[in-house]
Design a protein around this nucleic acid. Structure first.
Length: 506
RNA sequence: GGUCCGUUCGUCUAGGGGUUAGGACAUCACUCUUUCACAGUGGAGACACGGGUUCAAUUCCCGUACGGACUACCA
């Protein structure tokens, strides 16, 4: 087989949807698996929908996920330019060819005329059945055509869909899909502004860029018949890429495909990176800012509609590459399950080295104005990572260890504190103060032995020590926390807590 | 409306003519942890429906229902 060349071809009309990231991922995986080429192409042929910053956003998103294009705007490559707005002349030349061979024709119908037509007949389709009633180079007397062109009357170029052809698409995921050409309308190929439509541009570019596989969203399946016809019209059918249409990502609840609205509505990210739009309504929190590890995002996305056929759930990008195959992509839409995404991220946090976690968490700390040493923070992250799903939770789960003062939970205190425990508490604090080895293991052994010797019920005291350190009935092991805090800070906390306990009403 | 696509536990899915229909998330219980988590064990939980084909269908075929996408000079 020839070297595989795939492309991810987003349109810079705003933030890149998470479904787009999945499409990019599958393209990337296929390319990597076969030592092929992963190409980024920017489909910016709609000047009205162009959004400044969107292209940068797309690229930053891909890079954050680790999906670096081999070719694309800013990435080099022999088949550029990779931005469709820079390829205008190419499309126009190709359209001229189609016009010459009779596979396309000029159409002078205005948007208003067509709208009026659709209003009269909701089922109106610009196709062979009505072609001759409309204003185009097929229906116009030959002199009239030249006349209009000379006058500079705006026109579009449409595909002349042939009659009675069975168009077959071999889809890697769905098998054969048939279209009857008479059901297909004469799609606009070149718009009045001289820009190509998606249909024209994607065929021309895929051909010229020697794309071997088109992996794209299911929304393109209905127009794939047109695309095949276009390859035929150009005489490129023998090198036509193989198609694979991906199932959609569905809303977490209810019906329909996942939309950006669902993100705001449910308080979950649906974009890789945060995006600031014109309005608050058009601004979103990204997976990155939510505290996701890109590896978890990729892992989650990969399994949304695809699986290896084994029971493995956790995959590195390299493992995904090895295991991936387009044929194993499912056909049905996949519901976006945020709980699963959360679980994936938890897995990555649990297995991340403490220094990496500390490095990633530090920025959150700085927003709180706290300055904590690397050593402390690394140990801290190690102690807490089992109970954290997202990076920012490192704060919620253990902030009492980072802040000087502990806020005591009155309920916990009243549940565990009894005034007759004063001597035992004073005793254990002074015992702890006398310990030379301030490491969790030895400290644990020494204290529990001491409690035993003093005939004090460990349950009474250990929980109080915990409350003293954390303010509540939660958190890492008591002696782990003491080791982290060090003797001085630990004892100080214990003494302060005891004072607090004594003053509490019990 | 038309065209096209889809349908296995609540969710993501494995499987495939004869299986106790497997796993993961979520959920519940228990164990561990003198806390909370993590982890472990166990429970509950699915082949949309109707017809064929077949000795046998969840699996193949056809319908129906339901869902979705598309139906722009947007991608």
């Amino acid at each position: 087989m020839d070297a595989i060349r795939v492309r991810f071809a987003p349109s810079p009309t705003g933030a890149l949807h998470i479904g787009g990231v999945r499409t990019a991922l599958y393209n990337y995986l296929l390319a990597r698996k076969h030592n092929g080429t992963f190409i980024l192409r920017i489909e910016d042929t709609d000047q009205n929908r162009f959004v400044p910053g969107a292209e940068e956003y797309i690229i930053e998103s891909l890079l954050w996920c680790g999906l670096k294009p081999d070719e694309g705007p800013g990435f080099g490559g022999e088949y550029g330019p990779y931005r469709q707005s820079d390829r205008k002349e190419i499309y126009q030349a190709q359209v001229a060819e189609l016009l010459r061979t009779g596979h396309a024709y000029y159409a002078f119908d205005t948007t208003e005329e067509l709208e009026a037509r659709r209003e009269k007949d909701p089922n109106f389709k610009y196709d062979a059945s009505v072609r001759m009633e409309l204003k185009n180079s097929l229906s116009l007397p030959s002199g009239e055509l030249q006349n209009l062109l000379d006058q500079g009357v705006p026109y579009t170029v449409r595909l002349k869909v042939p009659d009675n052809q069975d168009v077959v698409v071999e889809d890697l995921i769905r098998g054969q899909v048939h279209f009857q050409s008479q059901e297909l309308d004469d799609k606009v190929l070149l718009k009045a502004d001289g820009m190509p439509t998606y249909h024209l541009a994607n065929i021309v570019d895929d051909h010229l860029m020697r794309i071997t596989h088109v992996i794209r969203g299911e929304e393109w399946l209905p127009s794939t018949g047109h695309h095949v016809l276009l390859y035929r019209a150009f005489g490129w059918e023998d090198t036509m890429p193989v198609f694979a249409h991906l199932p959609l990502i569905l809303k977490p609840d209810g019906k329909g495909k996942l939309s950006k609205r669902d993100g705001t509505r449910l308080g979950i990210p649906v974009f890789p990176l945060s995006w600031k739009g014109e309005s608050a309504e058009d601004s979103f929190t990204g997976f990155r800012e939510f505290g996701f590890d890109p590896r978890a995002v990729l892992n989650f996305l990969a399994l949304l509609g695809w699986n290896s056929g084994t029971e493995q759930e956790l995959f590195s990008l390299e493992e995904l590459t090895q295991a991936f195959s387009v044929e194993k992509i499912g056909k049905g839409g996949a519901r976006f399950d945020f709980d699963k995404a959360k679980w994936f991220n938890h897995q990555y946090i649990q297995t991340s080295p403490n220094d990496a976690l500390a490095r990633e968490f530090r920025p959150y700390l700085e927003t709180k104005g706290l300055n904590i040493s690397d050593a402390f923070l690394q140990k801290y992250c190690g102690l807490l990572k089992d109970r954290v799903h997202f990076l920012p939770e490192f704060w919620d789960a253990g902030h009492y260890l980072l802040e000087p003062a502990v806020a005591f939970d009155p309920e916990a205190v009243s549940k565990k504190w009894r005034p007759d425990l004063v001597p035992a508490m004073e005793g254990v604090i002074s015992f702890i103060r006398d310990q030379a080895a301030f490491e969790a293991g030895p400290l644990h052994d020494a204290v529990t032995q001491w409690l035993k010797d003093q005939q004090i019920k460990p349950g009474d005291i250990l929980t109080l020590l915990r409350i003293a350190l954390t303010g509540a009935m939660k958190g890492p092991g008591v002696f782990d926390m003491m080791e982290l805090l060090g003797k001085e800070a630990s004892v100080q906390r214990l003494e302060r807590a005891l004072d607090h306990f004594k003053n509490s009403v019990s």
